[in-house]
Nucleic acid binder design. Sequence first.
RNA 1: GGCGGCUUAGCCAAGUGGUAAGGCGACGGUCUGCAAAACCGUUAUACGGCGGUUCGAAUCCGCCAGCCGCCUCCA
Length: 488
Amino acid sequence: MSLNIFNALTGRKEPFEPVESGKVGMYVCGVTVYDMCHIGHARSLVVFDVIYRYLLDLGYQVTYVRNFTDVDDKIINRANQLGEDWKELAERFIREFYVDVDALGLLRPTVEPRATDHIPQIQSLVERLIEREHAYEADGDVMFSVESFDGYGRLSGKKVDELISGARVEVDQKKRNPLDFALWKAAKPGEPSWPSPWGPGRPGWHIECSAMSMDYLGQEFDIHGGGADLAFPHHENEIAQSQGATGKPFARRWIHNGFVNIRSEKMSKSLGNVLNIRTVLQDFHHEALRLFLLSKHYRSPLDYNDESIREAAVGLERLYSAMAGLDKLVGLQGRARELPEPLTNIRERFREAMDDDFNTPRALAVLFDAARAINTIATARRPPRDKAPLPELLGAARKDITDMSRNILGILTEDPRVFLDDMRMKRALARGLDAAEIEARIVARAEARSKKDFAAADRIREELAEKGVVLEDNPEGTTWTVKDLQVD
RNA sequence: GGCGGCUUAGCCAAGUGGUAAGGCGACGGUCUGCAAAACCGUUAUACGGCGGUUCGAAUCCGCCAGCCGCCUCCA
């Protein structure tokens, strides 16, 4: 099987064939830098990060472009509100963006262009559109004429006349048609501006993406992505501008990720339920967040609530703990010549899932199946020790699992032992517990147990349990874990 | 009003014609001094409802109901 991608332009899954064999050009609409990134941004960022990683895994030479919108109404308004220079504000939120993005473990795109660095490209695109009579000048603004472009509405499945009748946009006298949109906006006093043939002004929102994508990827490229809300009007307008200017098809396929809801409600400033990435990461490991975001297919809406993120955190720990178990098994020098089925063909099954429009829930199931198989061996090993598979077989399975999860999903990137220890220490710290003290109590309990004084031993265990410490007796001794405050 | 999408077990979630992945939880068992963890088993004769197509449908078609998104800035 090979990669199939759902194309919003056709509404179908289609076999993926790049414009240029072996190479992929992908443009994803980034953020407008006027505020902190929230969990909705996180979904888009992680989804396209995984798509990027998977394309790389398939061996494509990928040029991944993700822009910053660093001049726009929202930035200017926010800057005015705060009495901050708009440029400084944008720079500040770009820095904050990188804090979040790095915390999420995202790969850096090939290029991260900024709108303000592409004013000449934007202007020449606007000029071209005027020449081709797709755009007109009005009082220092330049508007795109929607009626001049035949295919308008194809991506979003809308018809121009239907849009007009249902239009809620305020009537702008400068527009010939209410659906026309600004390519270039004349500067009001005090606003950032660049000189242009139409007077000082700044780019409209949509044009920057056309200019930058074509600048780095050419007039026709493979994938254009973004959040579901961008399909209309943003992406629709991009298509109109780009095709209008070049006469070429522009992006061949469009990928839109679904929204994140918060406790079944749309996340919005007015509801006051906007959840920032760093807020979530205070309580949960970034891989737990990634796992959560990837636990549902990227096109469907995803509901964030205490239970759903908790489940992801528990699931991540299950995977890590199985991996720790696997490492122990490798050291066992087993002799069985066969692996259980879930530990075979991991790459094939994982890729088969990903090939089906990046079906990450299915890919995760491959990992969970493997985890169970590992635990089964680990549990069954005790008396018949030669039931454990040969170390080289286990080692190969280990590599398959980590290659897939680490390189493609960006989870299980840490050494399992280190991960589990860190997790335990973080939780102990959160509960104000001291490891040495706990271990002293464990020693005391061991003494009581050796004297068969189980009442005393159980008293110690209960006393620790009240503090959130869970003991596990096993043949090698007693280990302890701490219950997560979030999970508890 | 227009366009699009969704409805699978207690919960989350895969599954687009051949008889329901995976996770969380619950219950029973194994292990254990007892636990914990892990494992094993059980937990949807059934996929919103009603019809239709088909040898056969959660999967295709129609109607109905409920939910949601977009049509305005938004990931």
